[in-house]
Amino acid sequence: MNLDFTSILPSLPYILRGIGVTLQIVALAGLLGFLLGIILSLFKISSIKVLGWFADIYTSIFRGTPLVLQLMIIYFGSPQILGYQIEPYVAAVLAFGLNSAAYISEIIRAGILAVDKGQSEAAMALGVPYRPMMLNIILPQALKNILPALMNEFITLTKESAIVTTIGVMDIMRRAYQVGADKYSFFEPLLLAGLIYYIMVMTLTILGKVIERRMRRGD
């Protein structure tokens, strides 16, 4: 096996600049997915059936079709849906955010149901209305339990984000691929891209463990 990284060395900064692009998409999509996921999970446990149906159908669609298809439908479909072509970057955030909301809503739903029913009863008995009860009593306890699963979802999101390359977003993956095409040698830049993704995921993993340890301190 002959590896030669010297030829791609000048392109290293170019590839590294993709980190910012990937991180931005992942952070925004993660935030969107998380907030939307909370709302959907509340729909799912709601006593109003229509909301539950909506959330279930939403989840089944986004889990039942390929992510790359959703991404392309949002990107290429935007002129017909919205009347104008959205930026690839925006399409990526939307697709990943909407998609991960489906998965996150299931995680949060399970987390809420795992909180002892006595907690909501105690809050109700004190006259605490539904919203503050959820925000101050139930969700903080649910989030603590589901943190590992949530972290897993963000890690998946980070790796899956590489498919934005298909709609032309200049992320790590696409830059590595371009450098490969430029130098007629794909192996080295792709290895480098792999290393970058790996370091990002490891960072997330460590961050997750630190947060978990902090949250468990009260125990």
Partner: peptide, 20 residues
Amino acid sequence: IMDIRQNVGMVFQHFHLFPH
């Protein structure tokens, strides 16, 4: 119901204190 509950305190068998 919320107004009623404010006026009626309840203590449970398993306490149900807020652990956080």
